[in-house]
Simulated assay, not measured.
Amino acid sequence: MTPLDQQLENDVQDSGEMTFLEHLEELRWHLVRAVGSIAVFALIAFVFIREIYSNIIAAPSRPDFWTYRMMCKLSEKTGFADLCIQKLNFTMQSREMAGQFTTSLTLSLMIGLVGAFPYAFWELWRFIVPGLRPSERRAARGGVFFVTFLFLTGILFGYYVVSPLAINFLANYQLDPSIVNEFDISSYMSTLATLTLGCGLTFQMPIITFVLSKVGVLTPQFMREYRRHALVAILVIAAIITPSPDIYSQILVSIPLALLYEVSIWVSGYVLRLRLKDQKEMMESGNYTKDEE
Rank of each mutant, 00 (worst) to 15 (best):
Y68D: 07
R69D: 03
R69A: 09
R69T: 11
R69H: 09
M70E: 07
M70A: 14
M71R: 07
M71T: 01
C72F: 08
C72R: 09
K73L: 09
L74W: 10
L74Q: 09
S75K: 01
S75E: 02
E76D: 08
E76A: 09
K77T: 11
T78A: 06
T78K: 00
T78G: 12
G79S: 04
G79I: 03
F80H: 11
F80I: 11
A81E: 15
D82H: 07
D82A: 04
D82K: 09
L83F: 13
C84N: 01
C84H: 00
I85A: 08
Q86V: 01
Q86T: 05
Q86N: 12
K87R: 13
K87H: 14
N89I: 00
N89K: 08
N89R: 10
F90C: 07
F90E: 07
T91G: 12
M92L: 15
M92A: 02
M92E: 05
Q93W: 02
Q93N: 05
S94F: 05
R95G: 05
R95L: 06
R95Y: 11
E96D: 11
M97H: 06
M97R: 08
A98L: 13
A98M: 13
A98N: 11
A98E: 12
G99Y: 11
G99S: 14
Q100S: 11
Q100A: 11
F101C: 05
F101T: 13
F101G: 08
F101Y: 14
T102S: 14
T102P: 03
T103C: 10
L105S: 14
T106G: 12
T106N: 15
T106M: 14
T106C: 10
L107T: 10
L107K: 11
L107D: 05
S108G: 14
L109Y: 14
L109V: 14
M110W: 14
I111M: 15
I111A: 13
I111N: 14
G112V: 00
L113M: 12
V114S: 06
G115H: 03
G115W: 01
F117V: 02
P118A: 05
W122L: 03
W122Q: 01
W122N: 03
E123M: 10
E123P: 05
E123R: 15
L124N: 10
W125Y: 13
R126Q: 07
R126G: 15
F127A: 05
F127S: 04
F127N: 02
I128F: 07
V129Y: 06
P130F: 02
P130M: 02
G131F: 08
G131H: 10
L132P: 06
L132Y: 12
L132A: 10
R133E: 12
E136G: 12
E136N: 01
E136D: 10
